[in-house]
Design a protein around this nucleic acid. Structure first.
Lengths: 152, 152
DNA sequence: GCACTCCTGACCAAGAAGGTCAGGAAAGTC
DNA sequence: GACTTTCCTGACCTTCTTGGTCAGGAGTGC
């Protein structure tokens, strides 16, 4: 139940692209500098994002990366899935495919709920939201509770 | 963002203990059989649960494991934390400790919301809920949507 | 032709995941 | 006191993932 460095990097780089807007391609090096990400590692990540149709790129002198779609149509969930794979799998299988026996019969519903609650957050936030700071109400409701900010 | 086999096993074994109630200690072998978990692996897991004060044990002829507290006072969140460590850490650090620069400034709030939404589910469900099948409303609301049951 | 930038695969070290194995230490039984 | 039972513990193992680095190839623009 943790967020990998790769997913974190991917979202941050994508946010940077979203902020640059339509001012032409942005170089990988610039993204790496802006968000303090190892360049070569970032290039692999950007390639994955490209393969998933989230980002586009051009090589050469005036080359660089840009978002394949408007920033308000790209969600955090998409980016996380692109680099980490499916969200909230249990033992590497999707929760809807698991069959529990005996007293843990209802555990499946719990994992389904876990996945649904993650989706509620990750699919609600777009890159445009992230850059503007105007996060969806589902997020601001969750972060409003001071308890959400303390470790446990 | 995935659930490990260990966490899954731990919850299932604990559910089994909750169902057995106060009928004395339950042997590890019985738990392993009931939930189809490799015995030796399960023993390591139960030991961790014991160290975290969730389970108690006695050795010898009439020995076995039992819950340290009533089943309605033990949450899934506790069990997951005991075997997997803190929930929703980013790059192995808690979200409240991360400082983002530039255009990903608000990403911290998103990760905080992710953690909060996970807690909302995992801290709401107790072992008693799990065994009885009467899951808290937060769970049944999330699982009511057929969309929650399909892959994406 | 040349500089620039992305693209790709190979590699690598460390750690985690998912176990197995062997033995020791308490608890109960005869 | 011996013996069985069951937990307790650490060592070990294999495979995969994480978080990168390195080296070179392939488009693109001037």
């Amino acid at each position: 139940m943790r967020v990998s460095a790769k997913a974190d990097y991917a979202v941050r780089a994508a946010a940077e692209l979203a902020a640059e807007g339509a001012d032409g391609p942005v170089k990988g090096e610039r993204l790496a500098d802006a968000q303090d990400i190892p360049l070569q590692f970032l290039e692999h990540i950007l390639l994955e994002l490209k393969h998933h149709g989230i980002v586009r790129a051009r090589r050469g002198a005036k080359g660089g990366y840009w978002l394949a779609r408007p920033a308000d149509e790209v969600t955090i969930a998409e980016i996380v899935r692109a680099v980490e794979g499916p969200i909230a799998h249990v033992q590497s299988t999707p929760p809807e495919d698991i069959e529990y026996r005996g007293n843990s019969e209802h555990l499946q519903a719990v994992w389904i709920a876990v996945r649904a609650s993650l989706r509620n957050v990750l699919e609600a936030v777009t890159l445009a939201d992230l850059v503007s700071g105007e996060l969806p109400t589902v997020v601001s409701e969750l972060t409003a509770d001071p308890d959400a900010w303390v470790a446990r």
